[in-house]
Design a protein around this nucleic acid. Structure first.
Lengths: 201, 201
DNA sequence: ACCTGAACACCGTTCAAGT
DNA sequence: ACCTGAACACCGTTCAAGT
């Protein structure tokens, strides 16, 4: 045995990434294992170490795919007013947390556990997401200095993230009597109104 | 061997909980194991299943201890104005995330993984934390209905949580150029100012 | 009654050996 | 060169058996 040559290196990577995403969507991150991924794509566990450096690397690649979906969802029409654009982006963010809870969790949970030097191809994606937010904030900033825009953008988005975390938890039970979309509206309405001196939207 | 009777059931529980907290503080949640806990307190792994139902249960008990510390830290003086009280509570929350990052993470990460019916003795603690926030919000609510207070309290605290998540991540590297305390100030200042119609603090 | 020791069914990761 | 098979060093959990 050995040497099948049915798939190129790139095909094997894509196969494994897709298997991870399906397994996590079905059973959650906790039940993911290298051995299950290998079984799902009908290779041995050892093969995966020929194509990824380890499980963390494989998960990071799967997360990149989720971030790409998020970035696409957060693509607001260019003619939208900044408040509406931010509202649309935040809703897309919340929506992914609610509809793709397990995959969304894998993105934002996994980062916190192991302390690896997140590779630049990954950081680029998270950076892009944040730039989009900051851009819209800048449009409604008036004469505020760029540092103030930076701070406000980070504050707003951390808050949106906090609400999405709550939504993800509630999706996996805990307590159900919260309307996260209403929370998002309240946050944007009040925080941005005060920050930019707007009168509602 | 067997039957040492050096410690009561309660002592064994306390010993194990303390061991978990020390191991996590030193090495992080990812490296925690039942076997290491057992070794640390010089018992066999099997013993722990006589005193806790499983590892999840043990972790939940360790988290309860962390929540008790948090609740104590969040005990604002009764004569404080509501805005200051909320500011103090939020700072205490953020502070724990920064100074006890691993233990704080264990509280808020572990809940999201396994889908267990969180026991009532645990829910009571998280409920208490939230009541404190809602109480202060009610004091500055004017004539708003209780549902509006409830929504605003959840929104504010989810946002505070989001900022604390970011702080915890930055504490374990990632990106360092953010001042989370300034973000907290920005959130409270703008969100509460708008929500309650305050002029600053 | 209290605790152990050993087993069971899993893990992630490595690497010599086969084609 | 590509992939396997088997091993290594770990896991969480259970439970008969010893005192």
């Amino acid at each position: 045995m050995a040497r099948r040559n049915q798939h190129s290196r790139e095909e094997l990577q894509a196969l494994a990434i897709e298997a991870v995403r399906e397994l996590v969507a079905e059973q959650g991150l906790a039940k993911l294992s290298v051995r299950k991924v290998a079984e799902k794509i009908r290779y041995t566990p050892g093969m995966l170490y020929h194509v990824f450096t380890n499980l963390d690397d494989l998960i990071l690649h799967a997360n990149a795919a989720t971030l790409d979906i998020l970035l696409a969802d957060m693509m607001a029409p260019a003619d939208l007013a900044p408040f509406q654009a931010l509202h649309q982006m935040a809703s897309a963010y919340l929506n992914l947390a609610r509809t793709q809870t397990a995959l969304w969790q894998m993105v934002f949970m996994h980062r916190m556990q192991h302390e690896a030097p997140v590779p630049s191809w990954y950081q680029q994606r998270t950076g892009l997401l944040f730039e989009r937010v900051e851009q819209q904030m800048a449009r409604m900033a008036g004469r505020q200095p760029t540092e103030a825009v930076h701070l406000a953008a980070r504050t707003l988005w951390s808050s949106v993230h906090g609400i999405a975390v709550l939504a993800a938890e509630n999706k996996l039970e805990v307590t159900g009597d919260v309307d996260e979309q209403a929370m998002l509206d309240s946050l944007l309405e009040n925080y941005l109104k005060s920050w930019a001196g707007l009168e509602s939207s």
